[in-house]
Design a binder for these strands. Structure first.
Lengths: 139, 139
DNA sequence: CCTAATTCCTATAGCGACTAGAGGTTCAAG
DNA sequence: CTTGAACCTCTAGTCGCTATAGGAATTAGG
């Protein structure tokens, strides 16, 4: 029975100490038992739980979605439609964000490429931001 | 001399009314004169300024960067190096974000594709989040 | 066993960039 | 002149943390 301090758990999970306490405070992570002096003492199960959250966050899931996915993973006999739906929704959102950022990247590239390195008055960067007509079709 | 209400300015600029007031409160947008009853009355210059901000926000610039760019655009005789630098920094940031999201998209696609639509216990979505080994190399 | 350094505790406030709501006032159309 | 939409200020909330203050507990070394 491993007996991890919060700092050790932070190192092993890649989640910072204040973030772990924050997760506990909002009910994302189970509250662990405490040492005689009142410090948190975690076990393997907490480490698992925290890695689950961490991985989900890295994939861009919101904490609400992760709570739902956590609840589902605790009920292995239920159909996985809901989990699948959450993942698909997230995939769609990520694709939407990529598409938006690609458009942004193209416009930024045009800005930067055409910059003549002269004075502000002729600067493509400032001009692009000022001339709303150049981007009217994009948003 | 156009004399726009805040609602009209919001419609013309695509920036919401509370956001316009927020921009004024943080000094992003010049405070306009007021009607006898105390309501804001905007001119063309404010519309220009707000469109500049809006366009910059759409391109992902932070308000600090936009403040700097605004200051530069008011000094047309200065070299545009700084503006160029801000734009390049933003382009790099956008490229970084796209790369991250592409990796996320690939992992989400694997999750969703392999979902067998069975029960949670065999669900690829939940498994992927739980099995940290599957993603160890990616973050 | 004692001390010093490190880690831990709670509680509160702040970040960016808004958004929402309450409760009241002004304006413009009919 | 009335009505209802739009406006006003102020405060608090959103998301997911992060930072700070002021202490208490733990651990490593001597």
């Amino acid at each position: 029975m491993t007996d991890l301090s919060i700092g050790r758990l932070a190192t092993l999970s890649g989640v910072k100490v204040p973030t772990i306490r924050y997760y506990e405070s909002i009910g994302m992570l189970d509250a662990p038992p405490r040492s005689p002096g009142g410090q948190r003492r975690y076990g393997e199960d907490h480490l698992e739980q925290l890695r689950f959250i961490r991985h989900g966050r890295d994939l861009g899931f919101g904490l609400d979605d992760l709570r739902a996915l956590q609840d589902l993973s605790a009920r292995p006999d239920r159909p996985c439609e809901e989990a699948d739906g959450i993942a698909r929704k997230q995939l769609a959102e990520v694709e939407r964000r990529i598409a938006g950022l690609e458009a942004v990247r193209r416009e930024l590239e045009r800005m930067v490429e055409r910059c003549s390195h002269g004075v502000v008055d002729e600067c493509r960067v400032i001009q692009t931001l000022s001339d709303h007509g150049m981007c009217a079709g994009e948003h």
